[in-house]
Design a protein around this nucleic acid. Sequence first.
DNA 1: CTGAAAGCGCTTACAG
DNA 2: CTGAAAGCGCTTACAG
Lengths: 376, 376
Amino acid sequence: MSSGSVGIRDVAREAGVSVTTVSHVLNDVPFARVSPETREKVRTTAARLGYGPNRLARALRSRRSGVLGLAIEDVATTPHAGRIILGAEQAARARGYALMVVNIPAQAEADAGPQPALKSSPEPGQHATDPIQAGVESLLARQVDGILYAAGHRRVLQPSATPGKVPAVLLDAVAPDRSLPAVVADEYGGAAAAVEALLAAGHTRIGLLTTAEENHSTRQRARGFRDALQRAGLNGASATGEAASPDASGGYAAARRILAAANPPSALFCCSDSLAMGAYRAAAELGLSIPGNLSVVGFGDEELLAANLHPGLTTVAVPHSEMGAWAANRLIDELESAAAEAGPTPPTGGPDPVRLGCRLVTRGSVGLPDTGKRQP
Amino acid sequence: MSSGSVGIRDVAREAGVSVTTVSHVLNDVPFARVSPETREKVRTTAARLGYGPNRLARALRSRRSGVLGLAIEDVATTPHAGRIILGAEQAARARGYALMVVNIPAQAEADAGPQPALKSSPEPGQHATDPIQAGVESLLARQVDGILYAAGHRRVLQPSATPGKVPAVLLDAVAPDRSLPAVVADEYGGAAAAVEALLAAGHTRIGLLTTAEENHSTRQRARGFRDALQRAGLNGASATGEAASPDASGGYAAARRILAAANPPSALFCCSDSLAMGAYRAAAELGLSIPGNLSVVGFGDEELLAANLHPGLTTVAVPHSEMGAWAANRLIDELESAAAEAGPTPPTGGPDPVRLGCRLVTRGSVGLPDTGKRQP
DNA sequence: CTGAAAGCGCTTACAG
DNA sequence: CTGAAAGCGCTTACAG
């Protein structure tokens, strides 16, 4: 904390005007009438002295801290967290806001039943015992202007209270009553795009590799897959493997089952890159080369996996950075429209969550369907 | 920004005391003499009203924001960033501090030559063009009490100025003149531990897989490897492969070269998990099973890779979370000792960077040396 | 043991 | 077109 200790008063004295005028000029206050010469003089003086406003003082007086709180689940274990932070921070900074981050321990998926709550305090003055609340409260106690809540796994979230509190935007989650703006990835569309790439390459027997334990993501991906097939006049997957565990070893076992069947698929759509990695091993053991004998598409674009596999895995990228940026911008829009008294919530991002498109990243795992002549 | 709008004045009125007394009690001001009854009354009243201090007001008055700035390079692309943030945020929160995060674009490695600068402003009042400066300045403008600077890749950093500015702690980097406290991972020791595990399993011909383009990390890892061998009475790697690219395909080609040589090593120490992934593929193509015919150890413990490989990769974990926590605690120590007028810098973490130990994570890629009877 | 008062550095009605 | 003054909600000497 220092900022150089040159204050608005120094600028005023040096420029021979009042602090009011300095404040008006430097903040471009709309209705302030100041002569161009005075404006110039103030600006020059401020620059010469290296003046920067004390944001704390400004925040205290104006009741706006210019800080966004980001509550992010499992920052350490999900590889997406970094991209979300990047997108949110850059967007916020571009608009003059800063980002305060707290980690929230990941919650179990809970599409039904008791919901994790995005509320601020159980009883006023009590310390929160719920880690979600503790995190959000610590943000609120810091006078953030609004909160970005990024769920580790997409799911329904209950903001059972934000009463009299700050605005919030959900990221990779939706409020059960749709009461909060939310942004999610269009995983359904991403899956469809992956299938279409496979169809375009000529595949008609396409298998699905998913996880036995469903969650919102795998459901959307599997649905996108099935609907795309249907649109192409193909009914359903030619084989479906459900991995017992959502990792490469689960994918391996499930892929072995699929590929060992009679008339196996010539391509595999995998609901995650980890599963796809398992499919690579299964293919190798069965003497199937990728993409010569088998095409594979993953989901997630985990670079560490996808780019390191051989051949590189063609997969669907989830736009985490864009989602972070969208959420930050949406929150700031709301804050600034509220400040401008222009009504509480602009129409953008109304009841339905905004879906941001997933992009297919083409590497080397998709080829033409195997003609039957298997390489030795 | 709201915090419920119940202020210290409300508590004072309700409890029938002055705001001074409330402040003294709630902050446990050392030299304040307040009767136990009054203390109790103030505490109860504050709790009942759900009072929480406005940190902005406190910060403005006390000139301490209670916020740590974390400038982190490449938050989106390095998988370590999340763990650093987690460690730093938790440690900070535990001591009543919050964490403000800015992303810094990664810099090229620069052990010599012009250094990236951790300074605050080129010319007062000018906008910084250097992205590092821009990030650090945006933190400083927010009145953070101190700065944590986390480099993406360990390297020497020049804090060519922090003049009159806040204290800083370096993470995964050192200042050229050792002027700033710093914490790094003991990669040298981690590599030695990996080698020792291989030696303990009985290996004597151990190859080294590293990258052609050296950086501080690979140098330390290779040195740790060589010195551990030497201590065991073995002179040097039985083979060294330098990967043209620091990824799996580079590791693959280099591993092929090593393993194709006459009298190849029975174990491979790889300077990264990506390289190790390439070694797996090389081994598979050569008909070598892991760990039956070849043992492999990686470095980094990238779970997405290490746990998904088959067999699971035994590898060295870098304590990023602990480093984040250490750095935050070190910074807070400095802030609080400065506040207590107890001299500027406590002896902890003096000129030399503190090295935090790397842990060997055992999965399934290390076994006994191949006896020569190769599986069919 | 307790309180009245100044002041952190700004912004914001308000007066002229 | 410009400025004097109040006040955001605290902490901190200081007085009693």
